[in-house]
Amino acid sequence: MNEKMSQAPLLEVKHLRKLFPAKSGFLSKEKTFIKAVDDVSFTLMPRETLGVVGESGCGKSTMGRSVLRLIQPTSGEILYKGQDFMKLSGADLRRVRSEMQIIFQDPYASLNPRMTVGEIIAEPLNIQKKYSSKEETRDHVVKAMEVVGLNPKYYTRYPHEFSGGQRQRIGIARAIVLEPSLIVCDEPVSALDVSIQSQVLNLLKDLQSSMGMAYIFISHNLSVIKHISDRVMVMYLGHVVEMAKKTELFSNPSHPYTQALMSAIPLPERHSKRKKIILQGDLPSPANPPSGCIFHTRCFMAQEICSTQKPELKDIGGGHYCACHFCGKCQQGE
């Protein structure tokens, strides 16, 4: 691929918001909303892997699905290869959709139990009417199975006959069969045995280097994120609190929340001096997020200003973004 071309971003997401109406009181007229994703912006380059990490319920899945418009975002802008993805409809939308795919967490719910492996992997080709003949479609599916390490003799088997790891390979084959430019991977290994996880992660990495797609890789597991990402985005309560190149983020975590997450990773070195940071309190409800800095109710560094003033997500140097009033001014675990 041309070097200059690859400098143009594949995906630009600006001020993405998704509010879900929350069940309010029986008689109350007042409408409340769950702010699942609140003002998220990022850019994704071709062939890049953006890791998205955060506790369960912080809006990672909602963000990933909103980017693909599987959930209609409440507001925000999504530019895909420079065109306004939010405004597309009909045939244009369908065409762009063929370049964007998703891999799910649950290897059981993500495959139609009434379709054979071959039909599941052929579905994107059939929806997009890629080939006019059944033979061409079948040949392409057989190749895709081969690429993800599934023996094509399983073509006519049903998904329930496979293990979780193999099912995830079927899901991956379905995602790559149209040779997309972007795949949202929503916790693709979280439901798998640890021994299988690295196989699937390595498969995803290999596919990326041979096919050149970009990943938005969602996980609550920092070790997985560290293994696969080029850049990492840390989310908390629907907000981006920190975003940086992987090496930068892991060597210099600047947001107190990121520091807390990292202190929880078990270290391989025995004599680590690192102290585990234990967050106080529970995760606040996204229906009623704290004022000022959304993290102040649990932050070990919180000051007066934090509960009143919202910190901006600002560049603290070299594309390292952090949303904290005291970014870079703190030492881990102080």
């Binding site: 699905r65 693909l68 599987l70 939308l93 369908r94 065409r95 959709r97 063929s98 964007m100 795919q101 998703i102 799910f104 649950d106 719910a109 993500s110 495959l111 139609n112 139990p113 009434r114 379709m115 599941i120 579905e123 994107p124 929806i127 997009q128 899901g171 379905r174 149209l178």
Partner: peptide, 26 residues
């Protein structure tokens, strides 16, 4: 709500496709 229905939608499947391939067989 099943994810395989979402996968069909992600590929641009029409409502007709989702009903005939995803919902009815199941």
């Amino acid at each position: 709500e099943k994810e395989y229905i979402e996968a069909s939608r992600a590929n641009g499947a029409s409502t007709f496709w989702i009903i005939t391939k995803g919902l009815i067989p199941n």
